[in-house]
Design a protein around this nucleic acid. Sequence first.
DNA 1: CTCATTTGAGAGCGATCGTTCAACTACTGG
DNA 2: CCAGTAGTTGAACGATCGCTCTCAAATGAG
Lengths: 197, 197
Amino acid sequence: MARPRTFDEQDVIDRAMQLFWTRGYETTSITDLTEALGVHPGTLYRVFGDKHALFLRALAHYNERLVDGFAPTLLEGGPVLPRIRAVLIGWIDLAVQQDQPRGCLIANTAGECLPGDEEVARSVRGVLSAVEDGFLQGLRAAARQGEISSELDLPAAAAMLTMLLEGLQVIVKADSDPRRLVSAVDTALLSLASVRG
Amino acid sequence: MARPRTFDEQDVIDRAMQLFWTRGYETTSITDLTEALGVHPGTLYRVFGDKHALFLRALAHYNERLVDGFAPTLLEGGPVLPRIRAVLIGWIDLAVQQDQPRGCLIANTAGECLPGDEEVARSVRGVLSAVEDGFLQGLRAAARQGEISSELDLPAAAAMLTMLLEGLQVIVKADSDPRRLVSAVDTALLSLASVRG
DNA sequence: CTCATTTGAGAGCGATCGTTCAACTACTGG
DNA sequence: CCAGTAGTTGAACGATCGCTCTCAAATGAG
């Protein structure tokens, strides 16, 4: 009934997510966005509302693309701990795969925008609890299969893995030597497996 | 020989650090600083150079006040692991002691300003390696006293504790329930102590 | 007291911020 | 083919950004 769009909305959100991820929220200006997205300010504001709303869409997109569906991969059968390791290593790769280490959008956002932005806080909280819940499901499966002791406080161990993941994303931005990160992950998993009840 | 200052430089840097800590670098404007510090823009620029230089001073101040001298406390004699636990819990308290959880200035800064600011990166790197080295010294003492296995990869374990600390500071900003944080710390330390060589 | 020197105070600089708007263009239902 | 709707465009809005300049106030040295 009207003129069709010359851009794909999901594609624009994805590119906006990439920008916010590498440069942060405040540092990414509307000008940066319109240039990188090929969408002019007027269009951007009519379609998405404002910069903050676009940022929330980018956060949700990050959750869908990188967090949803990671829990199922932990439960595909076989030993779980190596899968958890692979997930953590995979996130390291994701954090450093650009020319400059960009870390994790959630950790970056928590550092920059919290406290003070309750909508963003809700979104960050949602992603973190999804990650933690994924780890918890994986650890429960690992406990059933005897990879870790059933005496372990599994929710606490899941929280610990989440902290390890996010802390790793902080450190990689300052010193992106992957070896130390990987050996730290290995030590954490080895330690978890060493607890005997 | 000239008119004396009406403010103490260290005091101003400390208050600037508090502001950057709770609000971040970009979000803290010169106007915010001059109002909170009681120092006018012209004075601020003549004394400190510019906003970025003041921020670097604030980072250095954070290092002096909160990181220097934490390693010695780990080595005062007696069991080390409880001291490490106390240090981690103490940092949790520090992160949430305001009305709003402000986390850790280093984690916040890494999230917001890196990559892209090499001077800030150097400062962050310095603080993180000081923390990691402190943990390493503590773990070596713990290994000597038999609290942990000497088969453990101690540098990797120190890196793991640093990641746990910084990850904890990310998560506390979104969900500042200290109980989960404490139990995660306990699980990590229990796990480390469970490794037997 | 005078002078040199540094401080504090107020106003305001250009640039960029997020945001909006009117005019123009392209498409579809009738 | 026309009317109407939605998309695109370029320009510009007020506000705020980091920062600077000018000038009066306050000191110690001579």
